[in-house]
């Protein structure tokens, strides 16, 4: 775990309770991905059905897990974190709603493709909501991780429509990352080329958040 550049120490120190790769229903070697938005999903689904194989469903389920994680994170943050400014509160709720919309869209798309959406895991966030600083730090890591997960997986998506959807979502994740970084007084776009992470790196990074 120490070798993963995505795992910040505060994440690594949270107790891990036996998540397995199988828990993600990751049967393929594919990394991560996404589906299209709720608003536009219906129009895309029929054509996505035509050329999306099982691989895309696996990718969608992996993405769904990441989006479940983010949704739960911001839902709890909105209730628990003290000392946020009005803007930070608004931002938290906006991010929560965006991630929730991603969950809904991914779930709908997986079903339309004939797949079975993964169940929402049980999450734990350790001390992430104990302070404004801790919350924003974890949010920063989660959003940057999300961007690199989607970027790493998108080239492996078979359906051009599912790819368009992954692009649509990753752009929003990147915007989230920049906004969270700004409130932390960190460079919003630290790299000229965003990272593309492989599944193993992502799984390591989010493992501490998932209860066994």
């Amino acid at each position: 775990m120490a070798t993963s550049r995505l795992v910040a120490p505060e994440l690594a120190s949270i107790k891990v309770q036996g998540l397995t790769r199988e828990a993600f229903l990751m049967r393929s070697t594919l990394a991560a991905g996404a589906a299209y938005g709720a608003m536009s999903a219906t129009g895309l689904i029929s054509s996505a059905l035509a050329d999306a194989g099982g691989g895309d469903v696996d990718i969608l389920n992996y993405a769904l897990t990441l989006e479940f994680l983010e949704t739960e994170f911001y839902t709890r943050a909105a209730k628990q974190v003290k000392g946020l400014s009005k803007y930070e509160n608004d931002l938290t709720k906006e991010l929560r709603d965006n991630e929730g919309a991603h969950v809904d869209a991914l779930t709908a798309t997986i079903k339309q493709l004939g797949g079975k959406p993964v169940a929402k895991p049980m999450f734990q966030f350790g001390g992430a909501f104990a302070s404004r600083t801790a919350y924003l730090k974890t949010a920063n890591v989660l959003e940057d991780t999300g961007v690199s997960a989607y970027n790493g997986a998108a080239p492996m998506i078979k359906s051009v429509d599912v790819l368009a959807a992954a692009g649509s979502i990753v752009q929003v994740e990147a915007r989230h990352a920049a906004m969270i970084r700004l409130v932390r007084d960190r460079p919003p776009a630290p790299r000229s080329f965003d990272a593309a992470s492989e599944m193993d790196e992502i799984l390591k990074a989010i493992k501490p958040f998932i209860k066994g």
Binding site: A178, P188, D194
Partner: peptide, 13 residues
């Protein structure tokens, strides 16, 4: 894609 998400970060900021 590696460039796309950077443009998105610039845009949001």
């Amino acid at each position: 894609l590696a460039i796309h998400s950077v443009e998105a970060r610039h845009a949001a900021a």
